[in-house]
Simulated scan of single mutants.
Amino acid sequence: MNYSRREILKLSSLAGLGLTTLPSLFSFSLEESIRQRAIPSSEEKLPIVGLGTWLTFDVGNSSEALKVRRQVLLEMHKLGGKVIDSSPMYGSSEATVGKVSASLDSQNSFFYATKVWTSGKQAGIDQMNGSLKKMRRSTMDLMQIHNLVDWQTHVKTLRAWKETGKIRYWGLTHYVDSAHGTLEKIIRQEKPDFVQFNYSILSRHAEKSLLITCQQNKTAVIINQPYDSGSLFRKVKGQSLPEWSLDYDIKSWGQYFLKFILSHEAITCAIPGTSKPHHVIDNMMAGYGALPDTSGREKMVSYLKSL
């Protein structure tokens, strides 16, 4: 079946209601593709919504949990998603990504990202080789320095690995506002391909200068904690979306929060985490349809603050 954009968005509103029967509704050929943005260092394009795996993919060897995570990746792929972000810090998440993606025909269509999270050159090399093995990759699309741990050491290794083709891109990550200044300094000095940090509709510290610095230095941006660790959903519990949100093809609060983030031109991709197929469908739909302009963004903030 082929659905128009309006019909797709109408269906996506059901995802926000948590209907577990939704995956079957999305087995169709889309008439409109998910929005994409270019990685500045290469001009390769990525879909603007991806998937984080912290907590949500740390499921060990549970066959039932692995089956559900497989469905998450399947639905993400159907709607055009590619970016899967993990870390050795995330328990069994890397191994889970490796297991479930290996069972999909689309295994090699994803953009795999993980991190190094240790001190010392050899320890970093050993950990990164372990991540490649767990995620079942011969080449990692993106290797990041997790929370800037021993970043001076790992930058040298990552540059060398990129030159030999063991990784395609390298980057830096953090998750708190207080690290933004340090990220800016390293971006100017080292010119990473990517930087990942926190940003949301009510946590806008990155707008002060970090996002501008990324644009000026041609650094791709991945956004973590787009829902402020769930606090945004708690704030709007029981509240209705404003009628004008339909102007931006918003059919759920998740899409409201994500579309605010994605409307900033400096942002390459946001990576909300989920373990539920109907939630990943809802998240991915934020990559379709209209995005708010500057006045629309401020209107969204004002409405949220009024609740």
Rank of each mutant, 00 (worst) to 15 (best):
Ala102Pro: 09
Tyr90Cys: 03
Leu232Glu: 05
Leu79Phe: 06
Gln215Glu: 14
Arg69Gly: 02
Gln216Tyr: 13
Leu246Phe: 10
Ala113Phe: 01
Lys121Met: 01
Gly273Pro: 12
Leu55Met: 05
Thr139Gln: 08
Asp150Trp: 07
Ile271Asp: 06
Glu32Tyr: 06
Gly230Cys: 08
Asp177Val: 08
Lys251Asn: 12
Gly273His: 08
Val149Gln: 07
Ile34Cys: 03
Gly181Phe: 08
Ser203His: 12
Glu265Asn: 13
Ser245Gln: 01
Leu30Tyr: 06
His77Pro: 00
Val149Ala: 11
Lys162Trp: 01
Leu211Phe: 12
Trp244Lys: 00
Ser63Lys: 13
Met89Arg: 12
Val83Cys: 01
Ser252Gln: 12
Trp54Thr: 04
Phe233Tyr: 08
His77Phe: 03
Lys251Gln: 14
Leu30Cys: 10
Phe57Ser: 02
Thr139Asp: 00
His174Ala: 09
Leu148Cys: 06
Leu142Trp: 02
Pro47Trp: 11
Glu190Pro: 07
Ala286Ser: 15
Asp85Phe: 03
His205Ala: 13
Phe28Met: 12
Tyr3Ile: 14
Lys45Ala: 14
Met76Asn: 06
Gly18Ile: 11
Arg5Cys: 10
Gly50Trp: 05
Glu32Leu: 08
Pro23Tyr: 14
Leu232Lys: 10
Thr213Gly: 09
Ser63Ala: 14
Asp249Lys: 00
Ile48Thr: 10
Val72Thr: 04
Ser178Ala: 11
Ser203Asn: 14
Glu265Leu: 11
Gly50Phe: 07
Leu22Thr: 12
Ser178Cys: 10
Ile39Ser: 00
His279Phe: 13
Lys276Gln: 13
Thr53Trp: 07
Arg168Tyr: 06
Ser295Asp: 15
Ser203Arg: 15
Glu298Gly: 02
Val83Asp: 05
Ser302Ala: 15
